[in-house]
Design a protein around this nucleic acid. Structure first.
Lengths: 217, 217
DNA sequence: TTAGTAATTGACCTTTTGGTCAGTAAAGCT
DNA sequence: AGCTTTACTGACCAAAAGGTCAATTACTAA
């Protein structure tokens, strides 16, 4: 909702440059971690003077925070508007599917978060507390309601969510291991379906549900 | 197999100091990652002059490699001696259980590996190729045999293994997130059982098995 | 004892780090 | 056009990084 009456050349170039920098930073931070990536690397990658980065983002911390903020901004936790009346199998199947697609196609963001959490989530703590925790609480309530209505097995809903997160994210965060073990160079286009199928089979059947026939989006 | 006829004071102190250094390095690397931990931090933590560390381990890389090697040395992948004649449910249940115990009680090593893999496993690549891959291949064969004998559902055995690894390791590698979301400060003694139960329920049932009655070790 | 060897480390080196700042360029406004 | 203000950046800085080395201190074996 930026009132674009006057395109203001300053704003335009600033936004363009910031995007350039953030893109480079996102890539480098996710590849090398916070300490592994340096400001000069980001500058070189973004083809921008280092001082310019500092001018925009105040400090390395500031840049890192901005990168995280931007990811969060267009990070959809999914499972929105789920209600007790929805069909658990369909909802969970689609959720797993979308998570696998994300993991395989956009592993960078997942890895950035992973390295953040590995270090104790210094920057994400607040986000987890104020956003993720309530979000989870809400989904947990729906899951619990489904269980109470005997629509699915009674398992700890928190651990069920963790199971979905872990199994799907694994293919992004531990991609190097997965590929090495399976002796592949990269995921191919059949992998998404294959992975989704395996995970969905195990988890859905594991909580007493059936994989829905088809669910085109 | 060190021929300890003459306890040789030099060797004794060297080994003592190396252990001191490796312990400190293991802790710091797992906490801060390769780039986050510095030689001087390790020196301070181990209460040893920095030059001494370099004397023993040649370089930071050398130290890091030694840390990894030591972990690998007493790292048991589990699932040893499994054969087609074993009961899938018992074997997998015990495997899951032991993995959860490790994750909750010794998360440091898991995290060190995780950050290694996140960065593309520069040091573990060779290990994965020469050790993990054949190990996995062998377990995959057993799993496949169980499936062929209709002892369990037919799912991709690789992805089944990844599912077990991911769900269990998650509680070590992403401990910060888990605790924040569940609003806890640390795992308590009921958590191991709770986690094991949830994961085992989902995975075992998910592949058509039942949780074994009891399995004391 | 003592000569010879290995272990140890304080001082030092280079490079890189995140960060500052004063000066210059570029809009924006009237 | 000319004046003000903001955007930018090359040159610089102190701190910290990993690493070297010469000098000193153990040990060991004869």
């Amino acid at each position: 909702m930026t009132t674009q009456i006057k395109p203001n050349k300053k704003e335009v170039t600033r936004e363009k440059n910031q995007k350039l920098i953030l893109d480079a930073a996102e890539q480098l931070f996710s590849q090398l971690g916070y300490d592994g990536a340096s400001m000069s690397m980001v500058a070189k990658e973004a083809q921008v003077p280092k001082a310019n980065i500092l001018y925009y983002f105040k400090s390395k911390d500031g840049l890192y925070e901005s990168v995280i903020d931007r990811i969060i901004a267009n990070w959809n936790l999914g499972l929105d508007n789920v209600t007790i009346n929805d069909d658990p199998a369909t909802v969970l199947y689609n959720y797993i599917k979308s998570k696998v697609i994300l993991a395989v196609n956009q592993p960078m963001q997942s890895r950035l978060f992973a390295s953040e959490i590995l270090r104790g989530a210094p920057y994400l703590q607040n986000y987890f507390r104020t956003n993720t925790r309530p979000w989870v609480k809400q989904k947990v309530d729906v899951l619990q309601a489904w269980m109470d209505a005997d629509k699915m097995d009674k398992v700890d809903p928190y651990h069920l969510l963790f199971t979905i997160w872990s199994t799907t994210q694994y293919y992004a965060d531990f991609q190097a291991e997965v590929l090495l073990v399976m002796n592949k160079l990269e995921y191919d286009k059949t992998d998404v379906a294959q992975i989704t199928q395996s995970i969905a089979h195990i988890i859905l059947k594991g909580i007493g549900l059936k994989i829905p026939e088809q669910s085109e989006t």
